[in-house]
Nucleic acid binder design. Structure first.
Lengths: 163, 163
DNA sequence: TATTGTTATACTCTATAACTATA
DNA sequence: TATAGTTATAGAGTATAACAATA
C-alpha cells in the first residue's frame, strides 16, 4: 500500500542511503516493522469494519464478559478517555452492551451481544490467518523468543525507571 | 509516564483480565512494547527538542549529506508530504540547510549545519545510552535474532502481498 | 476524598489529492 | 508526461485537565 508494486525503471530515490547509525537501535526496527504490521492488520480488519483498537476491545470484552471500562483501559494500556469512543462505536453497532452494575452505579459491565460474539469469531479467524502468514518461515522457538523479548522490554519500561 | 510509580493499595483495575486470545499474535506484543519504547524515547529526546522523526531525519542527513527529500522520505518510509514539516522544523532551528541542486533545480540537497552535527552527536549519545538500558540483560545473539525477525516481517509486508 | 465514566482539547503520526516549478 | 517539493486536509492514536455522578 505504501510502495509501488513494480519499481520505476530508473530509481533516483532509494539509492544507497546509509542508515547504519539508526540500525543499531532496536526501536528503529520495531517502529518500521510495526508500521507495516499495523497497516496490514488494518486491511485485514477492514471487511469487518474494525480497527486494531476496536478489535482488541471486542476480543477482551468477549473473553471477559462483565469487564468494566477502567479494567479494559488498563488491559489495553490506553487512557480511559480514549476508550470511551471505542466503546461508543462498538455499542452503536450493537456488538456490545453497557450494563449498569447494581453494586456500583458509577460503573458499567461490558457484555458482548450475539452479533458481537459472531463478529469476534469471524474476525479472529482472519487475524489468525494473517498472523500465520506473517510468521511464516519463523520457527516456533524463534517466535517465542521474540515475544519474550518484547514483553520484557514492555515490562521494564512500564514499571517506571528506577527499580 | 503512563503508569503510577507506586501501585494503589487497592487495585480494582488490573485484576486478572484474560488476554490469552490476543497474546497469540506477534503484532499485539509489537504494539504494546513499541508504545512504551516510543514514549521512553520521546522522553530521552525531549532535552534536545527532538522527536523520533526529527531525530531520524537529522541522523540520516548527517550521515548522508546532500540527500534529497524524496530519498530521505523513502529511507524513512514516510510519505513526502509528511517529511516537509520535519525538514521545515530542522531548517528553522538551523540544524540543516536546503541547498538547491544546480543540475536539477526542482530538488534540494539537504546538508547538516555545524549546530546540526553537534546536536546529532549529543542526541546519539543519549539514544545509545537509552538503547543500552533497553536491551540490558538481552544477549547479543538474541538481540540480533529479534532484529532479523523484525526486518524480515517488514520486508515481507513492504514488498506487496504476492511474491 | 477518591473513583467511574465522560467531555473537551491538543499533539503526533500517517495518508491522499492536487498544486507549482521544473525536467 | 513525469518528477520534486509543497499545500491542504483527513483520519487515527495518544495524552492531560476538568467535570458530574457515585462511592
Amino acid at each position: 500500500m505504501r510502495t509501488p508494486v513494480s519499481k520505476p525503471a530508473v530509481n533516483h530515490t532509494a539509492t544507497h542511503v546509509d542508515d547504519s547509525t539508526l540500525r543499531e537501535a532496536l526501536g528503529y526496527h520495531m517502529k518500521r516493522s510495526f508500521n507495516h504490521v499495523q497497516a496490514d492488520l488494518t486491511r485485514v480488519l477492514k471487511p469487518f469494519e474494525l480497527r486494531m483498537l476496536t478489535y482488541t476491545a471486542l476480543v477482551l470484552i468477549t473473553d471477559n464478559p462483565g469487564l468494566r471500562q477502567s479494567q479494559l483501559a488498563a488491559a489495553m494500556d490506553i487512557e480511559r478517555p480514549n476508550l470511551v469512543v471505542i466503546i461508543d462505536e462498538l455499542e452503536r453497532r450493537d456488538l456490545i452492551l453497557r450494563e449498569r452494575v447494581p453494586t456500583d452505579r458509577r460503573a458499567y459491565a461490558l457484555q458482548p451481544t450475539l452479533a458481537g460474539r459472531q463478529l469476534y469469531e469471524h474476525a479472529l479467524k482472519a487475524v489468525r490467518a494473517h498472523e500465520a502468514q506473517l510468521t511464516q518461515g519463523i520457527d516456533e522457538q524463534t517466535r517465542a523468543t521474540v515475544i519474550a523479548v518484547l514483553r520484557g522490554i514492555e515490562k521494564r519500561l512500564a514499571g517506571g525507571e528506577a527499580p
